[in-house]
């Protein structure tokens, strides 16, 4: 039994080293911009770069739009499938797994071919159209996570009983979803939203192939042309991801714990 614990520590410490060393190394590298001593020059250089500001701002806006569209598409669907059309559940599960199996590069290639400027819906024919397409693409990428977050949220609150209670009180379906269901699954939805944000903010493949001025392609461009700024950007990206995940953790403490049915 003691031996068991010993090996557990060995495995844990080896793993921890693998994950911590690159972070330390990257941080150290990001401080090396000035010869001879450590400085935060690379960070200053990054933050003062107008391209950093515009591309980051662009990605934040696209990310927020993707979160909103994702909620509008997923929440009513999950609600009605749970409530009235349980036979559609396996189909939903399958569809929402697809983005994990079909690589993003194939999706975006399909978009480019299907929605080019000479097609019926020429998304890529204009800058605005391409922006909209990018939002939809990100909704697709985040679909597995949004779906699961919302589905878990609805499972914990027992949608059936809440709906029946609201109907007895005279509420209509739109009122039920906006006034009863959404507030109760808010924490789950927000968790999905932060995860979406973490995935989308530095996304490279789709943004680059759609030629949008997003943060991902900017990162790649800096990586190809600068020495120390990439390390600083890696640290900044890590902190952003950590922030999004930290928010999910914090939100977890506010999640409703009542579960009327444990099936």
């Amino acid at each position: 039994m003691k031996q068991n614990r010993f090996w557990a520590w060995v495995v844990f410490l080896a793993g921890a080293a693998y994950f911590i060393v690159p972070l330390v190394a990257t941080f150290e590298f990001s401080l090396r911009m000035r010869r001879g001593y450590y400085s935060f020059d690379s960070y200053a250089s990054v933050f003062s770069d107008p391209n950093f500001q515009t591309t980051f701002g662009y990605s934040v806006v696209i990310g927020i739009l993707a979160i909103i569209v994702g909620i509008v598409v997923v929440v009513p669907a999950v609600y009605f499938v749970r409530l009235r059309m349980p036979w559609l559940r396996p189909v939903m599960e399958f569809i929402t797994l697809l983005p994990l199996i079909i690589p993003a590069i194939i999706l975006v290639y399909g978009y480019i071919r299907l929605y080019n400027s000479s097609s019926i819906i020429p998304f890529t024919g204009s800058a605005l159209g391409t922006d909209i397409l990018l939002v939809f693409a990100y909704v697709t990428l985040a679909l597995p996570y949004t779906y699961r977050a919302v589905d878990t949220g609805m499972r914990t609150i027992d949608v059936q009983t809440l709906t029946e209670a609201a109907q007895i009180a005279g509420a209509n379906t739109v009122q039920i979803i906006t006034a009863i269901i959404l507030p109760n699954i808010l924490v789950a939805v927000l968790s999905g939203a932060f995860l979406t944000f973490a995935i989308v903010i530095g996304e490279f493949t789709i943004a680059s192939l759609l030629n949008r001025p997003a943060f991902g392609p900017y990162l790649q461009n800096i990586g190809a042309n600068r020495a120390y700024e990439p390390a600083a950007l890696a640290i900044i990206s890590f902190i952003i991801t950590w922030g999004a995940m930290g928010m999910i953790n914090v939100l977890g403490h506010f999640a409703p714990r009542t579960s009327a049915r444990t099936d």
């Binding site: 150290e28 995860l195 530095g202 990162l219 990586g223 990439p230 950007l233 990206s237 991801t241």
Partner: peptide, 16 residues
Amino acid sequence: VASNFAGVPLAFAFIA
């Protein structure tokens, strides 16, 4: 965090 820390920044970290 780490499972979502893929992509370009991860490449930077390993180069460093």
